[in-house]
C-alpha cells in the first residue's frame, strides 16, 4: 500500500510539473482530486483495513493529499499568472489617443482676474459691493464733485440714456452708494462693467471692467493709502514689484495720485514696454474729497478715507499679452477657450 502511495506521488508530481496551461491543470485536478480519483479510491478502501494498517496508512494518505493539493495550487497560480501576463501584453492600448466626448468649459479671463482680485481684497477684509450700470447723473458725477460743465466730464465721454441718466463711466459711482448703504467704517471693493463713449481700437474698448476700492474710517492718512495699495500690488504682481505715487488730478479725490508700478517686463530697468520710463500706469487713487463724503452725509472733519480704481482689462492684456482688446468681448470661442 505504501508503495502504491509512493508511486502515486511520483506520477502525480511528474504530471503536475509537466502541465503548462490552465486546461491541463484543471484536468489533472479532476484526475487526482476528483470523486473517481485514485486518491479517493484509496481513502474509501481505508475503511476495510485493519486498525494497525489504518494507523499507518491514514496519515500517509492525508499527508500525500495535502502535499499534492498544495503542489497543484501553486502550479495553478503560476500558470494563471503567466497566462494573464501574456493576455495583458495583447491588451495594449495607445494612451495618447484622444476621445474628447466631454470637454471642460472655460471661464473668461476677465472673470478669472476679477475673482483673483476679489479674493485678495476679501483676504484684506474688504466687502464686495455692486451697483447699477445705468446710473443717475448724481451718483456718477454730482456726488463725486463733478458738477455740470466741469471739464472732467470731457475726460469721460459719457453715454446718455436721459439727460440725468447715464451708463456709468466708472465704478466710482458706488462710492457714495456704498457709504450710504454700509456706513462707516467702510472697506469695500466694487468690480464691474463701465462704459465710455469713444470708438474702440486695439487697446481701447467702449465697454470694460474696473475695480474700485474704498476705505473710510477715522484718521485715515496718505501713509495708510500707500501701505494698502503697496500690499495689494505685491499680492497681485509679486513681492518685487514697487509702487510709485505721483500727483494726478481726479475731481473726487484730494489729494489725487496716479499710481505706477515698476515695469513688469524689465523690472524698472527701462524698456519699450514701459516707454523707457521703468514704470507702468496702473490707475488713479487719492484721498476721498470732502465733498464726496458730504454727498454721503459723512462728517469729513471726523472721517477720512481713500479710494483707488483701475482697469481689469488692461491687466488682462498685460498678463496674457493680448494684442487686441476687442477679442475680449467678441464671443469667439477661439479666444475664450485658451484660458
Amino acid at each position: 500500500m505504501m508503495k502504491k502511495l509512493e508511486q502515486l506521488r511520483k506520477i502525480a508530481t511528474d504530471d503536475i510539473s509537466r502541465a503548462n496551461d490552465s486546461k491541463t491543470i484543471e484536468d489533472l485536478e479532476i484526475k487526482y482530486f476528483g470523486k473517481k480519483s485514485e486518491l479517493s479510491e484509496i481513502l474509501k478502501s481505508i475503511v476495510s483495513l485493519s486498525n494497525d494498517e489504518k494507523r499507518e496508512i491514514g496519515p500517509a494518505v492525508n499527508s500525500l493529499k495535502l502535499e499534492l493539493f498544495s503542489f497543484i495550487e501553486n502550479k495553478k497560480n503560476e500558470i494563471l499568472k503567466s497566462e494573464l501576463e501574456i493576455k495583458m501584453k495583447k491588451e495594449y492600448i495607445d494612451p495618447t489617443i484622444d476621445l474628447k466626448n466631454e470637454k471642460i468649459g472655460h471661464l473668461h479671463p476677465a472673470t478669472q482676474l476679477r475673482y483673483r482680485l476679489e479674493d485678495i481684497f476679501k483676504s484684506m477684509g474688504f466687502v464686495i459691493y455692486d451697483g447699477p450700470q445705468i446710473e443717475t447723473d448724481f451718483f456718477n458725477f454730482e456726488a463725486l464733485n463733478i458738477p455740470k460743465n466741469h471739464p472732467a466730464r470731457d475726460m469721460q465721454d459719457t453715454f446718455y440714456v436721459k439727460d440725468d441718466v447715464v451708463l456709468r463711466t466708472h465704478t466710482s459711482n458706488c462710492q457714495v452708494r456704498a457709504l450710504k448703504e454700509l456706513g462707516v467704517s467702510l472697506k469695500a471693493v466694487v468690480p464691474g462693467r463701465v462704459f465710455r463713449n469713444e470708438a474702440s481700437d486695439a487697446t481701447h474698448e467702449h465697454t470694460f471692467n474696473q475695480i474700485e476700492c474704498i476705505v473710510v474710517d477715522e484718521n485715515i492718512s496718505i501713509a495708510n493709502l500707500i501701505s494698502t495699495v503697496d500690499g495689494f500690488v505685491k499680492k497681485i504682481f509679486g513681492d518685487n514689484v514697487k509702487i510709485r505715487l505721483r500727483p494726478g488730478y481726479f475731481p473726487f479725490v484730494e489729494p489725487g495720485f496716479e499710481l505706477d508700478i515698476s515695469c513688469l517686463v524689465c523690472g524698472g530697468k527701462k524698456c519699450p514696454a514701459c516707454k523707457h520710463t521703468g514704470w507702468l500706469e496702473l490707475g488713479g487713487t487719492g484721498m476721498i474729497h470732502p465733498n464726496v463724503l458730504k454727498s454721503a452725509d459723512i462728517d469729513s472733519s471726523h472721517y477720512s478715507g481713500f479710494a483707488f480704481g483701475f482697469g481689469i482689462d488692461r491687466m488682462m492684456m498685460q498678463k496674457y499679452k493680448i494684442e487686441d482688446i476687442r477679442w475680449s468681448m467678441s464671443g469667439d470661442l477661439r479666444f475664450v477657450n485658451q484660458f
Binding site: I104, G105, H106, H108, A110, L167, R193, G331, V336
Partner: peptide
C-alpha cells in the same frame, strides 16, 4: 457650467 463644458462669453450691453 464650466465643469459641464460651457464656456463663458462676455458680450456688449448694446
Amino acid at each position: 457650467m464650466i465643469d459641464n463644458g460651457f464656456s463663458e462669453v462676455l458680450n456688449y450691453s448694446f
